[in-house]
Design a protein around this nucleic acid. Structure first.
Lengths: 203, 203
DNA sequence: CAGACCATGTAAAACGTTACATGATTCG
DNA sequence: CGAATCATGTAACGTTTTACATGGTCTG
């Protein structure tokens, strides 16, 4: 049980519908948790049955109605229990890093493509997180907001997401540059790459 | 199917036993993939049955024997297929960030403890990754190694892990400082904290 | 009027975690 | 001789992903 706490935490600052929640989780909730929409609907339904969320219907003209949820006392208590329990280690799982780890034995071309793609995503997230931070702190400077603001939790996690993506972007650039220049040296005509099984190249 | 590629990638640079592999995966393979030992034994067995790994018995005196594995041609081909397929988005999942996200509604004391713990882990990983990088590049400077070295894949991913943990450490410090100073203002006697359900504090 | 977005789900399959199990050897 | 480390697994359980399903509205 882990997603439930992420859902509770995300709903602390005001009511949201399953769909709205799904959108933020789809982006990754500032990069620390991803969940598919279907998972969320399931989890929300379960949390409501258990009395940790209270839902209410919002009638909308010109759009399908929706059901918005808020965290109940029981939900907050559950979150508090979770917060006091020992934290599990980070769950880093990045396919791109697996690919780069194997780069010495693979065709560099697809890796370069995917590094570029990842860099583009990182750039988009940086923009998104930057806007989110500005929106949260409003008129205040970051220092002022961290001292006095009323949503420091989300501010801090968003800050982490921002820095993570900046780092990510930076690294993608470096990795791409390294792979590119090595590919040129090894093989000036990029079409003719052949994987080199296991021969640990001696310089 | 995802762990299998991480296993294949990890085995590219020389033979390892299940146990040895488990140790590196337990640290997180430079923070981009974590797996429990049991999971690895399972996956290794499956990969060997499918002909992607070739195992061989190593007899040891003064220790239980072990079985070491290397990647076969089929394994490398599978990895190449994987590398060319589109990459799934990052899988960030960090319980501590969920907790900090909810910080405005929680007792800061356990969060501070856990931020300190996380910072300690990050420090240890920084040391570990720094040593790993030094070991890989040997006499060479980083630039030279990235241009000429024979294991740039692992070097690049380890570099990413290092930077990630440096960032992590930094952020833990900042978050702890913010939560501490706010706790003092709000409640000079730390024993008397009571969660404040939902009242969005107005400045 | 097609494609994007709003809105919510169910069911089956794949994957990952936890608990259980075993047994040898080294170090203090 | 007890604890730590080496070494390898099985079984049950819980979580996540993927595929399937549906239907209304808004924009160009």
């Amino acid at each position: 049980m882990a997603l439930r706490h992420a859902v509770l935490a995300a709903l602390l600052h005001g009511e949201r519908s399953g769909y709205e929640l799904a959108k933020t989780f789809d982006v990754g909730v500032a990069d620390f948790w991803y969940a598919a929409p279907q998972q969320l609907y399931l989890e929300i339904a379960k949390l409501e049955r258990e009395g940790m969320l209270a839902g209410r219907e919002v009638v909308q003209t010109s759009r399908p109605n929706k059901r918005v949820y808020r965290v109940t006392g029981a939900g907050l208590a559950e979150l508090a229990r979770f917060a006091e329990a020992p934290t599990k280690p980070i769950f880093g799982r990045d396919e791109l890093l697996v690919k780069v780890h194997a780069a010495d034995h693979l065709d560099p071309a697809p890796l370069l493509e995917q590094l570029a793609e990842r860099a583009a995503i990182a750039t988009a997230k940086i923009a998104l997180f930057t806007r989110t931070l500005q929106r949260l702190r409003g008129e205040l400077s970051q220092e002022q907001y961290l001292a006095d603001g009323d949503q420091v939790g989300p501010y801090l996690t968003c800050l982490r997401g921002l820095r993570f993506e900046q780092e990510n972007l930076d690294w993608c650039g470096q990795a791409a540059q390294v792979l590119r220049s090595r590919a040129e040296v090894r093989d000036p005509e990029p079409r003719t790459f052949h994987p080199q099984p296991h021969n640990h190249r001696k310089r």
